[in-house]
Amino acid sequence: MKILVHGLSAQRGGVESFLLDYCSCMIASSCHSFDFVLYGTGIPDYADGLQSLGCVFHTVVPRTSDPIKNRIQLSELVSSGEYDLVWFNACTLSDVSLLKAARRYGVPCVLHSHNSSPMGNGINALLHRLHKTEVSNLFEYGIACSDYAAEFMFPDECRFGNRCRVIPNAVDCDRFRYREDQRQAIRRELGLGDSLVLGHVGRFTEQKNHAYLLKVFAEVKRLVCDARLMLLGTGSLEAHVADAARELGFGNDVVFVGSVSDAYRYYSAMDCFVFPSIYEGMPLALLEAQASGLPCVVSDAISSMSFVSQNISVLPLGCDPVKWAEAVFEGVQAVGNREGAADYLASMGYGIDESASAVLKILLQSVFSEK
Score class of each variant (00 low, 15 high):
residue 267 Y to V: 01
residue 267 Y to A: 07
residue 268 S to D: 09
residue 269 A to C: 12
residue 269 A to V: 01
residue 269 A to Y: 13
residue 269 A to G: 04
residue 270 M to I: 06
residue 270 M to C: 09
residue 271 D to F: 14
residue 272 C to I: 12
residue 272 C to R: 08
residue 274 V to F: 14
residue 275 F to M: 09
residue 275 F to R: 07
residue 276 P to I: 08
residue 276 P to R: 08
residue 277 S to G: 01
residue 277 S to W: 01
residue 278 I to A: 09
residue 278 I to S: 11
residue 278 I to Q: 11
residue 279 Y to E: 06
residue 280 E to Y: 10
residue 281 G to N: 10
residue 281 G to H: 00
residue 281 G to C: 09
residue 281 G to Q: 00
residue 281 G to K: 00
residue 282 M to L: 15
residue 283 P to Y: 07
residue 283 P to A: 09
residue 283 P to I: 03
residue 284 L to E: 08
residue 284 L to S: 04
residue 285 A to R: 04
residue 287 L to C: 02
residue 287 L to P: 01
residue 288 E to C: 15
residue 289 A to Q: 08
residue 290 Q to N: 08
residue 290 Q to D: 01
residue 291 A to K: 00
residue 291 A to R: 03
residue 292 S to R: 10
residue 292 S to K: 11
residue 292 S to T: 05
residue 293 G to N: 02
residue 293 G to R: 00
residue 294 L to V: 06
residue 296 C to A: 14
residue 298 V to R: 07
residue 298 V to E: 04
residue 299 S to A: 14
residue 300 D to N: 15
residue 301 A to D: 14
residue 302 I to S: 10
residue 302 I to V: 15
residue 302 I to N: 11
residue 302 I to R: 06
residue 302 I to Q: 13
residue 303 S to G: 03
residue 303 S to Y: 07
residue 304 S to W: 04
residue 305 M to F: 08
residue 305 M to N: 11
residue 305 M to H: 05
residue 306 S to M: 02
residue 306 S to F: 11
residue 306 S to W: 01
residue 309 S to H: 08
residue 309 S to Q: 03
residue 310 Q to G: 09
residue 310 Q to K: 12
residue 311 N to R: 14
residue 311 N to D: 14
residue 311 N to W: 12
residue 312 I to P: 03
residue 312 I to V: 15
residue 312 I to Q: 07
residue 313 S to C: 09
residue 313 S to L: 04
residue 313 S to V: 09
residue 313 S to E: 05
residue 313 S to T: 12
residue 314 V to C: 06
residue 314 V to Q: 05
residue 315 L to S: 04
residue 315 L to D: 01
residue 315 L to V: 10
residue 316 P to I: 15
residue 316 P to H: 13
residue 316 P to Q: 10
residue 317 L to P: 05
residue 317 L to I: 14
residue 317 L to Y: 04
